[in-house]
């Protein structure tokens, strides 16, 4: 299964589905990472985590561990 964590910096991926449950998953969805949306992995923080993404026209930061919950095509 390929997840958002595996997407290289500067690449765009299409979200297939979200795994996990509860607060983190809901929060990720609330922020606009839902089925079918395109996510651009913009950069990684200087210390190697978290990621900076562009989704639905704005910037979002997401920890790599949480990015693993997002399955992409």
């Amino acid at each position: 299964m390929k997840t958002l964590r595996d997407v290289a910096i500067g690449e765009t991926a299409k979200v297939k589905r979200l795994h996990g449950e509860g607060a983190v998953k809901r929060r990720i969805m609330d922020m606009g990472i839902t089925k079918g949306v395109e996510v651009y992995v913009r950069k990684v923080a200087p210390l190697g985590d978290p990621l900076e993404l562009t989704v639905r026209g704005y910037e979002l930061s997401l920890r790599k561990d949480d990015a693993q919950m997002v399955e992409v095509e």
């Binding site: 509860g22 607060a23 983190v24 929060r27 990720i28 922020m31 978290p50 900076e52 704005y58 910037e59 979002l60 930061s61 997401l62 920890r63 949480d66």
Partner: peptide
Amino acid sequence: DPAPFVMELPA
């Protein structure tokens, strides 16, 4: 208290 770090980086 869950503490997800899914944060907007505002312009």
